[in-house]
Structures are given as C-alpha cells and as structure tokens.
Design a protein around this nucleic acid. Structure first.
Lengths: 191, 191
DNA sequence: CTCACTTGATAGTATAACATATCGAAATTA
DNA sequence: TAATTTCGATATGTTATACTATCAAGTGAG
C-alpha cells in the first residue's frame, strides 16, 4: 500500500471523527474529550492521535465545516433559466449540514479565529450574490436586507436539522417545509 | 429595616444576577464562574452566596427564564376583536428575552431537568392555543403545523435578539422586521 | 458612634478534565 | 506466517476550575 493511500484513509477517518464531534458538541457544547471520543466510537488515546488538543480540534472543526458547506454550495449552480430551483436545491443540500452551519456562527472558539472568520465571510459572498440576483429578477422581495435573509436562512436550516434529529419533522418532508416557511411565512394571504 | 424588605432586595439582586448570567452563558456556554461573576460585576465569593453551585445556578436560570417569559406572555392578551395585534405585540415583548428563550430550548443542563421541562411545555400551551385560534380565524395559514410555527417563532426571536446585540439590526425596527419575516417570508408575491 | 450585615479579595483545597506515555491486542501488509 | 502499524485501555502528570474559609472594608440603621 502506498503512502498516499494511507494518508487518504487517515483523512477519511479524521473527517468522520470531525463530523461526529461536531454533532456531539452542538448537542452539548461542554462535552469533554472523553465524551467526544466515546461518541465517535474510539478511545481517548486514538482521539489524541488525530488531534493535538481540544483547541486544535475546534480549529479543525471550523475548517471542516467551512470545507463541507463550501463544497455543497458550489454544487448548486444558479442557472439563469431555472433560478426558481436554486433555493430549494440549496436548502435540501444544506439541511444535513445544519450542525456545521450552527457551529460556524455560534461557537466562541471558532468565532475568535481570524482565518475561519474570514473564510466564513468568503463563504457567504456567493450566497449574497445569488439572493441579490433573485431580488433583481423580482423573485424575492426587494425590501428585505440580503444579510438578514442569509441569517434567517442559516437559522432555519439549523432549526430544521434539529427538528429532524429530534424526530419532530420527517426527514423527507423537511426541505419542503423549510422552503415553504422561508418563502411564505405563516400569514394567510388575503387575495 | 424589616426582614421582608431585606429578602426582597436580595431577590431583586438575585434576579439581576440571573439575567446577566443568562446573557453571559448564551454568548459563551462554557463561561467559568469567575467570568460570570465578573460579567455581573460582583466577586466570586458573592456569587456563591447567591447560588450554591454551578448546577444550582443553571436550575435557577431555567426557572427564571420560565418565570419571565410566562409573565411577559400573560401580559399579551388575545383579544377576539383585535387578534391582528397579538403576534406583533408578543414579538415586541419577547425580543428582549431572546437569550432566555434560547437558553430554555438549548441548554443541556436545563433540558435534562424534569420540572423545567414540564413548565416549558405548560408555557407553550397558551401560545399554541393562540396560534390555533388565529388559524381558525383565517388569519394564519391552516396548512402549517402549530408546533412548527412555535419553533420557528422561538428561533427567529433569538436570532433577532442576537442581531440586535451584535449591532446588525436597529433595536427599534427589530420587531417590525421580525413580524414581517414571520408573516410573509421572502418570496415576492406574484399577484 | 456602634453594631449588624454585606461585600470583595485572597488563599487554599478538592475535583475533574486535558494531555501524555506505555503496553498488549488486533488488524493490516508483505 | 512474520513484521509492522494501528488501536484501545490504563496509568499518570499537569492544569484549570469549582468551591470554601477567612478577613478587612464598606454601608446603613438605630
């Protein structure tokens, strides 16, 4: 087995560990390293073979979150011909990443890291542009602030993810529910 | 000075401490007792004179949150003649309590306490009834689940509170912004 | 002024969590 | 099969934090 394959396997396992750690820490931000290791199904010694310290774990988690969310967003293209499908597709893809999105915007350790903070801003840029375009097309309301729209989207994605995890919302109908809420709100139209 | 006045003063100071601790812990859930005391402008010794332990502090915070939110909700009556004003008034009153609402639904310590959990359910009941009534009146969409509506409301109240604290949203326009989002979403009506 | 009470600072202790090292077992590769 | 590595359990050192005890300073009432 070549060396490159070895590091690739390690990387895969590290990513799986990071994903599990994110979920664990979102559920209980004060989870100990022991709890994290147990939650990931590995020993505490092995955990420290992957990450040097708790602080470094947090940094890793931040970058991992950015990486995954960025990749997911890049997969969803804003097609001029079918711009109506952009948000629904994006939401469908983002819901499983609800914990990472939440982690990005709420964890204290992550938010005090300059690099991550900057990458987070870079991450929002294309989303802001997409919303702007949807507004110009007259598809989205133009009297709403773009940044506010993004904040609401993030917030609702996390909420939906959480409701799915807790079993209050069916996984298959979650995206539709969220799109519907995000688009129309709850007021009955009086037309 | 009478004894009753003394305990009343103590209670007032305790409440102020709890309110500050809530804000502090929402911003950084792993804040130490020292940080909490400092944030409240008191010494660590005094903090321990008010609450016996960290765990007891958490319990106190849970009950305090329930108490304040309940009182606020009871102040807003659902008047059959003016049911349109119920949600806007409620939202306006709830935004300053965003941290407490968040604390109630997200803190691990609080959510594992049976009493608080039960009181939290009791707290939601009148809100659920109000939403049901608004749906029957045709004022709210009837195809949306009541519990989902409450979850979204809580989530957005916290988001708005946070945006106000961070300075991204003006305090005076926050309620209007939230009501608008909650009612209509972001899709442009094609009428 | 005096007394009762409260507060904040400091020092100290106990406990829990982080982090490291070791060792045998299991898995993987040659 | 033999060698190498990977892993998990355990033990241990080190640090951080919750909590206690004590004392001096401040405050208000009588």
């Amino acid at each position: 087995m070549k060396k490159k394959e070895l590091t690739a396997i390690k990387q895969t396992r590290l990513n799986a560990l990071l994903d599990e750690a994110t979920k664990c820490l979102v559920e209980n931000p004060s989870a100990s390293m022991n709890e994290i290791a147990e939650s990931a199904g590995i020993g505490i010694a092995t955990l420290h073979r992957y990450v040097e310290s708790r602080e470094q774990l947090m940094i890793h988690l931040g970058f991992r979150a950015i990486e995954v969310v960025t990749a997911t967003m890049n997969d969803i293209k804003l097609d001029d011909e079918r711009y109506e499908s952009y948000i629904p597709e994006l939401i469908e893809a983002l819901i499983p990443l609800g914990d990472k999105i939440y982690f990005l915007s709420h964890d204290a350790t992550v938010n005090s890291n300059k690099d991550i903070e900057e990458q987070d801003r870079a991450l929002r840029k294309p989303l802001l542009r997409a919303i702007e375009l949807l507004q110009q097309k007259g598809y989205f309301r133009q009297d709403a602030d773009k940044n506010w729209i993004v904040e609401v989207l993030y917030s609702l994605v996390f909420l939906t993810w959480q409701q799915v995890v807790e079993g209050n919302v069916a996984r298959n109908s979650a995206a539709q529910l969220l799109v519907d809420t995000f688009y129309r709100g709850f007021r009955q139209n009086e037309s």
